[in-house]
Amino acid sequence: MAYFQQFTMPQKGEAGGVASNSQAYYSFDLGNVHFISLDSYGKDEKGMRLYEQQSAQVAWLKKDLEANKNKEWVVAYWHHPPYTKGSHDSDTEDLLVNIREQFNQVIEDYGVDLVLCGHSHVYERSRLMKGHFGPEATFNAEKHNLSSSTGLYDGSKNSSPYMKSTSETQGTVYVVSGSAGQLGGAKATYPHDAMYYSNNEVGGSLMLEVTGNQLDVKWICADGKIRDNFTMMKNVKNKDKASLKKDKVLTRSNSNEKEKLSSLR
Rank of each mutant, 00 (worst) to 15 (best):
E259I: 15
G13Y: 04
H121S: 07
V74Y: 00
T231N: 07
T150M: 03
A222C: 09
K12E: 09
F7C: 11
P161I: 05
D94H: 00
V58S: 04
A19S: 12
T84F: 01
K218G: 07
S87D: 12
A137G: 03
V33Q: 06
S37W: 04
K246G: 03
L152A: 10
L61Y: 03
Q53D: 13
K225T: 14
G134S: 12
Y77G: 11
N32W: 00
E142C: 04
S87G: 07
R265W: 11
V106R: 08
K85Y: 06
N98G: 07
Y41S: 09
E52W: 09
M163Q: 12
S22Y: 09
V106W: 07
Y51G: 02
T92L: 08
K237N: 13
E45S: 15
K246P: 02
D29F: 03
V112R: 01
A76H: 00
T8D: 12
R127Y: 07
L30D: 13
E168M: 11
S255G: 08
V173W: 03
E66I: 06
E142A: 14
K71D: 11
T166V: 11
L215Y: 01
A59I: 13
V202E: 12
G17I: 04
M129D: 02
D223C: 05
S40H: 07
G151S: 05
A2E: 13
V115F: 00
M163T: 07
C221M: 13
S37P: 01
K258N: 15
S159C: 08
S205P: 01
M48F: 13
W60K: 02
E201H: 11
C117Q: 06
Y83C: 04
E14A: 12
I107E: 07
H79A: 11
L183A: 09
K245W: 04
H88K: 15
C221D: 13
F7H: 12
S87W: 06
W219K: 03
E257A: 14
Y123P: 00
P82H: 08
L250Y: 09
L244F: 10
W60V: 03
N98D: 12
Q54L: 13
V97N: 01
V106N: 02
S40D: 10
F35T: 04
L261S: 00
K12D: 15
K258P: 01
A137H: 05
K260L: 14
V249M: 11
